[in-house]
């Protein structure tokens, strides 16, 4: 049965369209419209300070952004941040998931504790670590100094790395959650077969566990990476992009451009470039991770 695309009479409308109507209205209002507005904005010279003097400038904003050193720097920072954080989290999360699976007692308790960080207000996490790692009042540098290690966690060399560590602390639990679910969903028989065949622990892991987990790994990777692109709270809570601009991430850059310098047009252009970048990234990951078909 086919339904006409344009429905004039609401009473005749198929129930499936009635059911999605509220969502469609809501999302058009709060997402689609702003999104289109953003596209328009990116083509204007729109400054909050001169809100009555908006001029169409075409792709000038894009040109400006694409050649802006601090945008490129922010993009570079974000990419290194995302790549290192996600890889750490992937490896740690998978190892912890495998370990938790091996737990004989306290399994539920350990899982609950280790999952906890992912639910916490990120700004609170940022401030917590700013406090813990502070070179004057932080407990970690204090005791590190006692054993002769002197590190300036938020200094020019380490700041971005510290932010990565904080992200790892908060978001490894997400990977853990995904992998626990993934491992639980795996069928038992291939593992039993491998044991009967005499396969060792590592062989089993690399030739059975890992390939079967592949879809979960890909999904977890994409979700986490996209989320990491939005990193803002830690930067805002701790370094405000500094020292210099060594921790300025793309979100912080857009925040600065739009709401500190009030240049909305350029900020919109930057956010659109971000979206394009993310899209390319997702398509790339999905294609690369697709299992090769044997012909």
């Amino acid at each position: 049965m086919r339904y006409p695309l344009i429905i004039t009479n609401a009473a005749q409308m198929h129930i499936k369209y009635k059911l999605i109507l509220p969502l469609v209205f809501l999302l058009s209002g709060i997402m689609l419209y702003p999104f289109i507005f953003s596209l328009w904005l990116s083509l204007q010279d729109y400054r909050l300070t001169r809100i009555n003097d908006v001029q169409f400038v075409g792709f000038e904003n894009f040109g400006f952004i694409a050649t802006d050193q601090s945008f490129l720097n922010a993009m570079g920072n974000t990419i290194s941040f995302v790549a290192s954080a996600v890889i750490f989290e992937l490896i740690l999360g998978l190892s912890l998931a495998l370990l938790i699976q091996k737990l004989v007692i306290f399994k539920g308790l350990v899982r609950s504790i280790l999952l906890a960080p992912m639910f916490i207000t990120p700004i609170a996490v940022g401030l917590m670590f700013r406090f813990l790692l502070n070179s004057e009042i932080g407990i970690i540098p204090f005791y590190l100094l006692r054993v002769g290690v002197s590190l300036d966690w938020f200094g020019p060399e380490l700041a971005l790395f510290s932010i990565v560590l904080i992200d790892v602390w908060q978001w490894t639990p997400f990977m853990l959650l995904m992998f626990l679910a993934g491992l639980e969903a795996l069928p038992k028989t291939p593992f039993e077969a491998a044991r009967v065949d005499g396969a060792g622990r590592w062989l089993t892991f690399f030739s059975i566990t890992l390939p079967m987990l592949r879809p979960v790994i890909v999904v977890a990777l994409i979700i986490r990476a996209l989320d990491a692109f939005k990193v803002f709270e830690y930067v805002f809570a701790i370094t405000r992009g500094g020292p210099g601009n060594s921790t300025e991430t793309i979100m912080y850059y857009i925040y600065q451009t739009g709401f500190r310098f009030f240049r909305m047009g350029e900020a919109a252009a930057a956010s659109i470039l971000l979206i394009i970048f993310i899209l390319v990234f997702v398509i790339l990951i999905v294609n690369l991770s697709r299992p090769k078909v044997i012909k």
Partner: peptide, 27 residues
């Protein structure tokens, strides 16, 4: 007929707040 819609929901979930905050703020 809603297979596509499922993925648009996922896409909406992934939308970076940076792109929505500017128009939302102005509105």
């Amino acid at each position: 007929g809603f297979q596509g819609a499922r993925y648009s929901i996922l896409a909406a979930e992934m939308m970076p707040p940076a792109i929505l905050i500017l128009p939302l703020f102005l509105l």
